Computed example of a mutant assay.
Amino acid sequence: MAGEKMNTETNNLFEINNISKIYERKIALDSLSINIKKGEIVALIGPSGAGKTTLLNILATVLNTDKGEILLDGNNIESYKGVKELAKKIGIIRQQFDLVGSLPVIHNVLAGRLKDWGFLKSLLSLLIPQDKELAIKALERVGIEEKAYERTSKLSGGEQQRVAMARLLVQNPEVILADEPVSSLDPARAEDILYTLTNLVREEGQTLIASLHSVEYAKKYFNRIIALREGRIYFDLPVEKVTSDVLKELYDLKELKEDAQS
C-alpha cells in the first residue's frame, strides 16, 4: 500500500530518482538521479545557483519535489512521519549553526536528544540538563568540553560549529547533511572543522553529504564529488578522478563567455 514502509535490503542510503524542482518558472533541479551508499562521504560542488542547497533541503524534507521520488533506506522518504522518526535518520548542520545563543552550550548539545525524550523530560532538561554525561562526552570528542556551561553566543564561530557537531553526536543519525558548514569560518578554522567532522563521521559509520564552495576542501576531505550545474549533474566521480580540466569546464560559466565576447 502507498505510504507503507517495506523491509528492503539495500546498500544505498539514498536513492534519488529523476527529481525536479521549479521556483517560479526557474528550474532549480532538472531530472536529477543519484544513489548515495551507506558510509559514503560526498561533497556537492558547483557554481552559485547550481542547485546544491535545494538538493540538500529536499533530502532534509524541508522542500518537496515537483517530480520524481526519493528512497531513504529503501522506503519513500515521505513515509517517515514526524520530526522524531526522521531525526533518527537525518541530521543537519548549516553555516548558521542553528543554535540558541542565549542557552548554555550543554543545552544546545542535548537538543540532539529531543527525538528520544518525551515532552516532560525535554522541559525538565531546560532546568536541569538530562543525560549530562552523554553531552560532556560529545563535547570532549569535538575538543570543547570546558565550554559546556558557557553561554553559546559567547563562543567563536568555530567553537559554535563544534557545538553543532556535538549535538549531532548526541542525535546519532544515519546521515548528516551539511550545507556550506564552513563558509563563515576563516581557512584555518574551516580546515579544522572539516577534519573533525569527516573523522567523526568515519568513526560513527555515518554517511555525510556536504555542499562546499571550496574545491580544495572537497578534494582533501571527501571520497566522492558530485558537481551540479544549472540543476543537473555535471559529473559524479571519485575524488582521485576529479582533474583540473573537468573543474575548469564546470566553472567556465556561459555568462563569462558572453561577457568576453561583448
Results as ranks from 00 to 15, higher is better:
G112P: 04
R113V: 02
L114P: 01
K115I: 14
K115R: 15
D116V: 06
L120N: 07
K121G: 10
K121Q: 15
S122F: 06
L124P: 02
L127I: 15
Q130D: 08
Q130E: 09
K132I: 14
E133Q: 14
E133Y: 05
L134A: 13
A135E: 14
I136T: 10
I136D: 09
I136K: 12
K137N: 15
K137T: 14
A138H: 09
A138C: 13
A138N: 07
E140L: 06
V142L: 11
G143P: 02
G143S: 09
I144H: 02
I144V: 07
I144C: 00
A148N: 02
Y149P: 00
E150Y: 03
R151Y: 00
R151M: 01
T152Y: 00
S153Q: 08
K154T: 14
K154G: 06
L155W: 03
S156K: 08
S156I: 12
G157V: 05
E159K: 09
Q161G: 15
V163T: 14
V163M: 13
A164V: 12
M165D: 02
R167H: 04
R167K: 08
L168V: 08
L169H: 00
V170K: 05
Q171F: 02
N172A: 11
N172V: 01
N172E: 06
V175D: 05
I176F: 06
I176R: 11
L177Q: 06
A178L: 06
E180F: 10
E180V: 11
P181W: 11
P181G: 11
P181H: 14
V182G: 07
S183H: 06
S184R: 04
L185W: 05
D186M: 00
D186W: 01
P187A: 02
P187K: 06
R189L: 04
A190G: 10
A190E: 00
D192R: 00
D192W: 00
D192T: 01
L194E: 02
T196V: 07
L197M: 13
T198Y: 07
N199I: 01
N199A: 09
N199C: 06
L200P: 03
V201T: 10
V201D: 06
V201N: 07
G205S: 12
G205Q: 13
Q206Y: 07
Q206F: 04
Q206R: 13
L208H: 04
L208M: 11
I209N: 01
A210M: 08
A210P: 04
S214L: 14
V215G: 10
V215R: 04
E216Q: 12
Y217I: 07
Y217L: 14
A218D: 09
K219T: 15
K220P: 09
K220L: 14
Y221G: 09
Y221L: 11
